[in-house]
Structure formats: structure tokens, C-alpha cells
Amino acid sequence: MVTRTKDSNRSRYSAYRFLVQTAAFLVILLNPFANYYLGVNFVQGWYQSLGIGKLWFVSPLEGIESILVSKLIYLPLLIGMAIPVLLALFLGRVFCGWICPINYLSEIIDRFRRFLFRKRFIKDWFVLPKYLLWFALIGELVLTMVLGAPIFVWLSPPGLVGREIMMAVFFRTLAVEGVVVLMVLTMNLVTRRFYCRYLCPLGGLLAFLGSRRKLVVARKEPVCKECGMCSKVCPLGLDPLNGESRASYCWNCGECVDICPDRTLGFAWRTRPMEDFILHQAQSDSRPRDESE
């Protein structure tokens, strides 16, 4: 076996992701200043709906709620939802892992906690069944239609971060609903991404769209020492060795790929239907190595 140095061994997805997240956060942090003080309106909004010139993004959950409640179809809304929906169909919940400001803030808190307590991994104290995410999505859609108003889009933590920044810049005040952001970040101290795992309807919708996604984390090499570091580092509490990285819940953040000491895990582009893929994986996993070669 070739001995490799520790640094060249590791992939650097976490570093790239942190850069993307920082850039995405700077957009919603600096844009209100540009709007208010410079009168530059080229970019408007935040991660509920973002307009960059004539390119519009609309969060799929918000768009679906607007259509469900008003029972009217507006073509620019559908076109605005197209890019996020396509992204979720092919890449899964990458919005959550790579862009969402709530995950960004939670991750900064996590990094600080690891530094403070000099620990490599953070323990989750309160774990619930993962399928609660689907109940959150369905319950939220039904509640919205009953009330006749999209409640989540107003209480949506990713959107609230943007709204509170805008409120602070435009009106020099903070709206009371910002408490929700604080609650979500506090829950993160008990269980990492507690809100994202079990309660976020937007994450649920993106997970649903991405359940047959192309980009997955999979075992690329048969060699695996089963050290279990991937399941410890996963912010969603998934176990990539069990194939849970191919489940809908995974948001493709690549933490497990980075931590894997043998580079067993890696991002894979799924070309076959899901069942074939899992079967193939299971066969190649169970077979002894010399037989498969």
C-alpha cells in the first residue's frame, strides 16, 4: 500500500463549501446596504426570492404555497422556480448544504464549539426519527391551505435571516419573528441541525425532489476500515456506510468524503436507476475483492 501524506489524502469539499456559503451570505448581507445607501437595485431579495437583474429565483416551497393558496398560476413564478427545482432534481438538497444561511450560521457555531471544547466531533443529544421531515412538509402545506396564508414563508428561517438584515439596514429595527432564528440556532446546540433534520418544510420539499437525484455520496473503493468517522461527522446524523448517503435526506455537503481516511467515500454521478445502483453496490460490497477483479 502506498503511504500518502495526510493533506494530499483528503478532499477539500468543506473548504469549497465554506467559500460558497460565505459568498451566498455576503449577498444577502451586503445587498440591503447597496439598495439603501447606493440605490443599486440590480440584486433584490434573499433566499425566498432572489432577483439578479432579470434572472429570478423563487424558492420552490414558497412558489407552491402561493399557487396552492391563491389557486392562480403566474408564469414568471413557475419560471423562477425552474432553476431551484432542476438543481434539486439533479443534485438533491444542495441548497441546504451549500447556500442556506441557517446552515452557515449553524456551521460557524459548530466550528466554534469544536474549537472551544477541543473536540473533533459534536454529539447529538436528542435524536428523532428522520421521517418527521415528511410530516413537517405535508403538515405545513395543509396548514397553509387551511389558513389561506403561507405561514412558513413568513417564518422561514432562511428567509428570516435575510429579512432581519434588511429590516436592520432599512428601518434600523429588528422584527419580532427573528426569535425563530434564535430558537433554531439554539436547537442546533442540542442536536446538530435539529430544525433542518426534522422540521424544515423547505428541506423536506428539496429532499423529496432530490430523492432520485444524480449526485450521491457512495463507497467508491471496496477498502473500508469501518472506522465510523463519516457517521460521526455527518451534520444530519446519517450513516454513509449504511447507504444513508444515498437516501433523500442527504444534502451532499461532503463532510463525510473529507473525513474518510482511506478515501473510500466519494461523490458519484448516478447513471443507472436507483434500485440497480444499490443492488450493484451491495453485490460489489459483499463479494470478496479478488473475485470481483
Binding site: G45, Q48, S49, S66, V69, P150, W154
Partner: peptide, 8 residues
């Protein structure tokens, strides 16, 4: 019901 509170 129609407004998604995006603040744009």
C-alpha cells in the same frame, strides 16, 4: 395567500 413575503 399570494404574497410570499420575499421583500423584493
Amino acid at each position: 395567500g399570494k404574497c410570499i413575503r420575499c421583500g423584493r
